[in-house]
Amino acid sequence: QTIHNGDQTYHYDNPEEAIKVAQKLAKIYNLTVTVKGNTVQVH
């Protein structure tokens, strides 16, 4: 599972963990989380 947060990319073995982290980032920075296959984008 990969999270793209602007210019930063994070890799997680656990998809659920990746989505949790993405949602935390989204709340902190007031962003949107988009899940596309194995990629979670925060923008």
Rank of each mutant, 00 (worst) to 15 (best):
N14T: 15
K24T: 11
P15C: 14
A26L: 07
H4K: 08
L31G: 03
N30R: 06
H11V: 14
T39W: 07
T34E: 05
D7H: 15
V33R: 00
T9W: 14
V35N: 01
H11A: 06
Y10Q: 02
I19S: 07
T2Y: 12
N5M: 13
I3H: 12
G6Q: 11
L25R: 00
V21W: 15
A18K: 00
N5D: 10
K36W: 10
Y29L: 08
K20P: 01
T9D: 03
Y29E: 06
V40K: 00
N5I: 14
V33A: 02
T2E: 12
H4N: 08
I19L: 13
E17A: 09
Q1W: 05
Y29N: 05
Y12A: 03
A18P: 01
L31Q: 03
I19W: 14
P15M: 09
E16T: 07
H43I: 08
Y12V: 03
V42C: 09
T2V: 11
K20I: 08
Y10L: 08
K20Q: 08
H4R: 10
A22P: 00
D13P: 10
Q23E: 11
Q8L: 13
Y10G: 02
L25F: 05
E17I: 14
K27C: 15
Y29H: 08
D7M: 15
K36V: 14
Q41F: 15
T9Q: 06
I28A: 04
E17N: 04
N5L: 12
Q1L: 12
L25P: 01
Q41H: 11
L25M: 05
Q8Y: 14
Y29G: 06
Y10S: 02
Y29C: 15
V21Q: 11
L31E: 02
T34I: 08
A22I: 04
A22W: 09
N38S: 10
K36G: 03
V42M: 02
L25H: 00
Q8D: 07
N5H: 13
A26I: 11
D7A: 13
K27R: 12
K24G: 04
K20C: 15
Q41Y: 15
N38P: 02
T9R: 05
E17F: 07
G37S: 02
D7R: 13
K27T: 10
T34Y: 06
K36H: 13
Q23R: 13
G6F: 13
T2K: 10
I3V: 12
G6A: 11
G37Y: 04
N5E: 10
Q1D: 10
I28W: 14
T2Q: 11
H4D: 08
A26W: 07
V33L: 03
Q1K: 10
T2P: 10
H4M: 10
T2S: 11
Q23A: 12
V35L: 04
K27H: 08
T2N: 11
V33D: 00
N30L: 05
Y29S: 06
V21A: 15
T9G: 03
T32E: 07
V42Y: 02
T9P: 02
Q1A: 12
Y10K: 02
D7F: 15
T34L: 06
L25N: 00
L25T: 00
K20D: 05
L25I: 05
I3T: 11
T34M: 05
I19P: 00
N14E: 03
Q1P: 12
G6P: 09
N14R: 05
H4W: 14
N38D: 03
G37D: 06
V42Q: 01
K27Y: 12
G37H: 03
H11W: 12
N14S: 15
Y29M: 05
A26V: 09
Y10W: 09
A22L: 04
K27Q: 12
G37W: 04
T9F: 15
I3G: 10
V35D: 00
A18L: 03
V35G: 00
G37E: 04
H43S: 06
V40S: 00
A22Y: 04
L31V: 09
L31R: 03
N5A: 11
N30G: 15
H11N: 05
I3K: 10
I3N: 11
V33T: 03
N38F: 04
A26E: 09
T39S: 07
E16C: 11
N30D: 05
A18G: 01
L25W: 08
V33K: 00
K27S: 10
V40G: 00
T2R: 08
Q23P: 00
T34D: 03
Y12M: 05
G37Q: 03
P15D: 06
G6E: 09
V42E: 01
L25C: 06
G6D: 08
P15F: 07
K24W: 15
A26T: 08
V21E: 09
Q41P: 00
